[in-house]
């Protein structure tokens, strides 16, 4: 009986592991293999290529020809390092700005009357009903020189020459904040909504001002939601390609764009793969850190 149920319990766990194996680990290994290969003109443009008809000796010689050459090349060229650093910087600044906008939004939603909350929640999710690409395109129409924003500001008399926003990093920030705001708002909203409002009253009763109670109780208890929101914005923002490509200019350096150029314009699959591997490693660190923070938070609030 025990053995049977133990096996059954294991079987359940196997399903997600199989999923991870086929859809994460195998693709990762394929990319890693390309990253370790050498550039070659051909189809596909790298060597060596393994085949099932290879003999043992052939397989071994192909395997030993894999090397870290592409990674060494990446480290040697400041373009790539600058791409990473610039991506991290843009992602970081966007995350902070998204938090500054998202927190008050989530707070307002959580404190809204019961009947209004589902509607507000809907409004936050509503943009997802339109394709991401189209929404980013729409921003071109808003931000360009003769776009809606400039027309409005000129008409209001706030500016006399149109602002240059499109094709600068400003447009990239706007695009990222706009696109990822729901990912910030929703986790923060869910932690704030669960929070017992009498905790704030208790803090005020015990001598806190309104602002003091906000920092010591509301903000402190929202930390798990804030962390989740920040990572949900930061991680995809680092690797973002569409937004810098459409809204950014030639000066916008982001790793997603660099990767695209290597892959499609230069047809250098091997360097593109190496870039992807490093990006993954750069992102795994905050994810693991986040997982630990989450585990600690659940331990605390249990």
């Amino acid at each position: 009986m025990n053995i049977v149920s133990a096996i059954k319990a294991r079987l359940v766990i196997i399903v997600p592991y199989i999923w991870l194996l086929f859809f994460f680990l195998l693709p990762f290994l394929l990319v890693l293999k390309i990253a370790l290969s050498d550039l070659e003109y051909g189809q596909p443009p790298y060597a060596p290529q393994f085949s099932f008809s290879d003999g043992w000796g052939e397989f071994w010689s192909k395997l030993t020809s894999l090397d870290l050459e592409n990674f060494i090349f990446l480290i040697g060229d400041s373009l790539y390092i600058n791409s990473y650093l610039s991506s991290l910087q843009i992602a970081f600044v966007s995350t902070v700005l998204t938090l500054l906008i998202g927190f008050p939004l989530a707070y307002g939603m959580a404190r809204a009357p019961d009947g209004l909350r589902p509607i507000l929640l809907m409004l936050v999710i509503l943009p997802f009903w339109t394709s991401f690409l189209i929404r980013v395109y729409a921003w071109i129409g808003i931000l360009k020189q003769e776009g809606l924003l400039n027309q409005l500001l000129l008409w209001l008399g706030l500016i006399h020459t149109p602002l240059e926003i499109l094709s600068t990093n400003k447009a990239v920030y706007i695009g990222i904040i706009y696109s990822y705001l729901p990912f910030m708002v929703l986790p923060i909203y869910s932690t704030l909504e669960k929070m017992d409002e009498s905790l704030v009253e208790a803090a005020r009763d015990l001598g806190c001002t309104r602002i003091g109670a906000f920092w010591k109780v509301t903000a402190r208890l929202a930390v798990p939601g804030i962390l989740a929101g920040c990572l949900l914005v930061f991680i995809p923002a680092v690797g973002e390609f569409v937004i810098p490509d459409l809204l950014g200019g030639s000066g916008t350096l982001m790793i997603g764009k660099t990767l695209w150029i290597e892959f499609f314009n230069n047809s250098d699959w091997t360097v593109a793969s190496a870039l992807a591997i490093i990006l993954l490693i750069v992102l795994v660190v905050p994810i693991v850190w986040f997982q630990n923070a989450q585990a600690r938070a659940t331990e605390q609030s249990r």
């Binding site: 009498s198 905790l199 009763d205 208890l221």
Partner: peptide, 13 residues
């Protein structure tokens, strides 16, 4: 004045 709340309102953290 201090108040004892119905939900106790103990700070969970």
């Amino acid at each position: 004045v201090n108040m004892m709340f119905q939900s106790y309102a103990l700070f969970p953290h």
